[in-house]
Nucleic acid binder design. Structure first.
Length: 158
DNA sequence: GCCAACGTTGGC
DNA sequence: GCCAACGTTGGC
């Protein structure tokens, strides 16, 4: 199976690329949208690469990259009553929500902002640039991933 | 903080 | 199963 490419959104107050760099790996949990859930459960595999995108930020944009190190498994926070992501309708024997684990790969010294992404002709089709696009886990093409990496290339810590 | 766009809920 | 009301996301 060929490696696939994804974009994961997160608000920097919730989890930042700096945290990921420090943590090394993390559980990517709390996704509560069915379409995004389906990607995590069915399609995100070990070895896939991820653009870590910070939303609701100044600026919003790609902050770094990560590699998937554990494929979809039941989101433990859905079973934790104290978690804001607790869902009492989710059952351990048939979990509603899924998580994956990712490992830090690179951090951009400068966030590749939405405006900068929009300025790239070869990125015109990127889902994240589409108006009204709210998915927190979405596929990107290999070409898009590599184009963003190239943009970050001059400014990204390796 | 505003508000457009979208997803979910629930009455019927 | 329709659709209005409501909640959330996220750029600006």
């Amino acid at each position: 199976m060929a490696r696939k490419y994804w974009l994961f959104k997160v608000e920097p107050e919730a989890y930042s690329i700096e945290r990921l760099e420090k943590d090394g790996t993390t559980c990517w949990e709390g996704v509560r949208n069915y379409q995004a859930r389906n990607f995590l459960r069915d399609d995100v595999k070990v070895g896939d690469l991820v653009l870590v995108y910070r939303s609701n930020a100044e600026p919003s944009g790609v902050a770094g990259t990560a590699e998937v190190c554990r494929a979809g498994y039941p989101d433990p926070f859905a079973f934790d009553q104290r978690s804001p992501y607790f869902d009492d309708k989710s059952r351990r024997e048939s979990p509603t929500w899924f998580a994956v684990d990712i490992r830090f790969r690179s951090r951009c010294r400068r966030v590749i902002s939405l405006a900068e992404l929009r300025g790239q002709n070869q990125l015109a089709g990127m889902l994240v640039l589409r108006k009204g696009q709210r998915l927190s886990v979405m596929p990107v093409t290999q070409q898009e991933f590599e184009a963003v990496e190239k943009l970050a290339g001059a400014t990204c810590a390796s």
